[in-house]
Design a protein around this nucleic acid. Structure first.
Length: 515
RNA sequence: GGCGCUAUCGUCUAGGGGUUUAGGACGCCGCCCUCUCACGGCGGUAACGGGGGUUCGAAUCCCCCUAGCGCUACCA
């Protein structure tokens, strides 16, 4: 039996009013580590949550623990099923797989908060029974007034305990009268709440900050903090690894653990990912949806590697890691305590590194979705030839999307020629004749391979008493319209005799350099 | 306003009392390689927020200030 829950417990000798005891599972050994990623489906998987998911996953895999995915969909207004789908897809793209959760099952389900109501109700019932919680009849208006008054008095807003002071018979009366009420926890406000954060060290929150927080809303639904704690207890979570924006939730949750008589898990609050302006990354910082990076031509493994280094670093200078290497080396004590700006520049560089590591065949496969949008693709090129094109372009692009632009001329004639290139080409004496001669030579070059082509080009330059460059550059321009690209001879080899000859002649006809 | 977290090159970071003329990576600049571009190689640019302590010695420990960020709901 893996998990404890309020409902799964054996009936036992519980008389009326006897409620099951809630216990927290403490990690007994390394294999007992259970962590969770708990997104709310109110949007796509964005980079901040993705990194949280990755760190949780890394921690679980490193310790051979369990990685759980839990969907916190209790926000009826904003939660959408399609977002759950999007989050799942995002995690899959990242290669972050979960052992328990939606579509994976597990002993601690259900994994959607919206279906765990009975757990919360039962815990609430028990808390009421034990007197750890009291009804609060204060209206939202009064609470709001209280808050503004405290704020203007430069005080920290907190509940004034009015309903705690209510006499028992009055409480009973008002409840009987059907007056709506929320449930607040009776927090001991005498001492600080502190915990040793695995990332931040000792964090201590003074008693003046502690409040009788609401655990059940007047409509009966549990609050976020309460649901999280009940879920984490019943799912046997040993380590809560989350963004540091949750630090202020932690004391509240610890109070709930105490009321429930459970030992809190270990907490690790990892730093935020920041936008260019150093504020928490959000939509206004551009692409925050993880799968958007796929569309932009990033490789999943490069993105993963990059995210890994945002806030974590190994003990040496290594930066490029396979997934297994990071799993092996990851540890929370090497997670930096300060926020990190998402540097798209470095991501691009890293993506380029991964692209260059791809085999030519794989490069072609990965680029295929982008290539297929190209006019004239794949034309009469064999797979072998397309692999060769991919090989030639591999070290010249950093994003898969760039291949569309880089490979265009292989599949259709250049529509125009680079201006600077034309200016330079014009300096080659008798350019038209040279190009004409080359076309003629090429028509009979045998074999039409890299060496054969190179010999033809160099012979022609020599015959005319000019440097090879004087022929090479205009030729590249005539064939590709570009002044940059793969080595001319290997490029001509894939292009093939027919295309080379016609494009050379078209170039002469067009005469674009004389303006 | 209150509370909390953070503070090393522009960016990601190493370094956690003497081993540091503060190391690596991205970016940028230069050189080499070379048919161009790119890759690759080599070199350069650039940082311990400020002030007080503690100590023989502080980027490293403590305090204050400052700055940035976060949280401050019967939202999650």
């Amino acid at each position: 039996m893996f998990c404890l829950s309020y409902t799964d417990r054996p009936p036992g000798p519980s008389g009326p009013g006897r409620l099951p005891v809630v216990e927290s599972r403490r990690p007994r050994d390394m294999s007992d580590i259970r962590v969770r990623f708990a997104p709310s489906p109110t949007g796509n998987l964005h980079v901040g949550s993705a990194r949280t998911a990755i760190f949780n996953w890394l921690f679980a895999r490193h310790h051979q623990g369990t990685f759980i995915l839990r969907i916190e969909d209790t926000d009826q207004e904003r939660s959408k099923p399609e977002y759950t789908r999007a989050i799942l897809d995002g995690l899959r793209w990242l290669g972050v797989d979960w052992d328990e959760g939606p579509e994976a099952g597990g002993d601690c389900g259900p994994y959607f908060q919206s279906r765990r109501r009975s757990f919360y109700d039962e815990a609430l019932q028990r808390l009421r029974h034990e007197g750890k919680v009291y009804p609060c009849f204060c209206t939202p208006e009064r609470l709001q007034d209280l808050r503004t008054a405290q704020l203007s008095a430069k005080q920290n807003p907190r509940y004034d305990g009015r309903c705690l002071a209510l006499a028992d018979d009055e409480v009973a009366q008002r409840i009987a009268a059907g007056e709506p009420f929320a449930l607040r926890i009776k927090a001991a406000r005498l001492e600080s709440v502190e915990w040793t954060d695995l990332c931040k060290g000792l964090v201590s929150i003074g008693p003046e900050m502690l409040d009788d927080i609401v655990v059940a809303k007047s409509d009966g639904y549990p609050t976020y903090n309460f649901a999280v704690v009940v879920d984490d207890i019943t799912m046997g979570i040993s380590h809560v690894i989350r963004g540091e924006d949750h630090i202020s939730n932690t004391p509240k949750q610890i109070l709930i653990y105490r009321a429930l008589g459970a030992t809190p898990p270990r907490f690790a609050h990892i730093p935020m990912i920041l936008g260019e302006d150093r504020s928490k990354m959000s939509k206004r910082h551009g692409s925050t949806n993880v799968v958007e990076y796929e569309r932009q031509g990033y490789l999943s493994e490069a993105f993963f590697n990059f995210m890994t280094l945002l806030g974590w670093s190994p003990s040496d200078d290594q930066e490029i890691f396979t997934r297994d290497e990071v799993v092996r080396r990851f540890s929370l004590d090497r997670v930096s305590p300060s926020g990190a700006i998402f540097d798209i520049n470095k991501l691009k560089w890293m993506n380029g590194m991964y692209i260059r590591q791809l085999s030519p065949a794989e490069m072609l496969d990965r680029a295929e979705p982008f290539l297929s949008t190209l006019e004239g693709y794949p034309g009469d090129y064999s797979r072998e030839q397309r692999v060769e094109i991919a090989r030639q372009l591999r070290e010249r692009i950093e994003l898969l999307t760039e291949i569309t632009d880089a490979a265009g001329y292989f599949f259709h004639e250049p529509a125009e020629y680079d201006e600077k290139g034309l200016a330079k080409a014009a300096k080659t004496p008798d350019l038209a004749a040279v190009m004409e001669d080359l076309a003629a030579a090429l028509a009979t070059t045998e074999p039409f391979d890299e060496a054969g082509i190179e010999a033809a080009v160099r012979q022609l330059a020599e015959a005319r008493g000019m440097g090879a460059g004087k022929v090479i550059h205009p030729t590249r321009l005539a064939l590709s319209g570009r002044i940059a690209g793969p080595g001319l001879f290997e490029m001509m080899h894939v292009l093939g005799r027919a295309r080379c000859v016609t494009r050379l002649r078209r170039f002469v006809e067009r005469h674009p350099w004389e303006f």
